[in-house]
Structure formats: structure tokens, C-alpha cells
């Protein structure tokens, strides 16, 4: 399976609160909340780190089998990307998120 790359959209404002990431889309003023595991994926979505590597980080931090973590991460990406706040590509994504994962 070819690897995928994910990147945060630049059209958002995000802030960590209580272990969960709160994200506001400036496009349609939709407010998103990610749980702790989803937040780890979000913070690692720099456009340069392949999803498989992000999943490896999940496996090292959480009690989960690699196969389960990969399947869940792919599902999460597939669910969130249509909302436009997470970009997905088969190739590294450049300059999609020049600022940090947590922005004002």
C-alpha cells in the first residue's frame, strides 16, 4: 500500500484544551473537537511525515496493535479530510501549514 501524507489546513485556528484539540474553520465557522488520539495525529500532520510513521508514534504512546492503529488512523483521515481542514496526498505536502499545530 502506498503511503499517504496529511497536513493541517492553514485556514483554521486551533487550541489545545484539556488534552483535546479545538479547531475552528475560518471557511465556514465550523467548530471541531478531536479526542486525545486524534489530537496526536493532528499535531503530527505536517505534510512531510507519512501516515505510517504517525501510526508508529501512536503505537509507542498508546496500548494498541499496529494494525488497529493504522486502520483507525486511515478511517479518521478519510472522515475528517472531506471537511477541508485536513489535506491528504500521496506525496509530501509543502507549505500547507506554515504555523504550528496550535495557533492563535
Amino acid at each position: 500500500m502506498s503511503d499517504r501524507y496529511i497536513a493541517r489546513s492553514s485556514a483554521i485556528a486551533a487550541r489545545m484544551l484539556g488534552g483535546e484539540m479545538m479547531i475552528m474553520s475560518s471557511v465556514d465557522s465550523t467548530f471541531y473537537t478531536l479526542n486525545e488520539v486524534a489530537t496526536v495525529i493532528w499535531q503530527a500532520a505536517d505534510g512531510r511525515t507519512p501516515l505510517s510513521e504517525i501510526v508508529s508514534a501512536l503505537v509507542s504512546q498508546f496500548e494498541v496493535e499496529p494494525e488497529v492503529a493504522l486502520r483507525d488512523a486511515q478511517q479518521f483521515v478519510d472522515d475528517l479530510s472531506p471537511h477541508g481542514i485536513l489535506l491528504v496526498s500521496d506525496h509530501p505536502i509543502a507549505d500547507s501549514s506554515p504555523r504550528s499545530a496550535e495557533t492563535a
Binding site: D28, S29, F31, N35, I41, F62, E63, D72, F76
Partner: peptide
């Protein structure tokens, strides 16, 4: 020690409608 795993999920709501 590793932390308990929960499936990565998100929820969302339209702010305009919430600001009901």
C-alpha cells in the same frame, strides 16, 4: 507505561447555529 487507547474521533458543530 502506555496510555489507554481510544479510537481517533472528532465531533463538530456549526458555531452560528449554536450561538440557539
Amino acid at each position: 507505561a502506555k496510555k489507554p487507547y481510544r479510537k481517533p474521533e472528532f465531533r463538530f458543530e456549526k458555531v452560528f447555529e449554536t450561538l440557539l
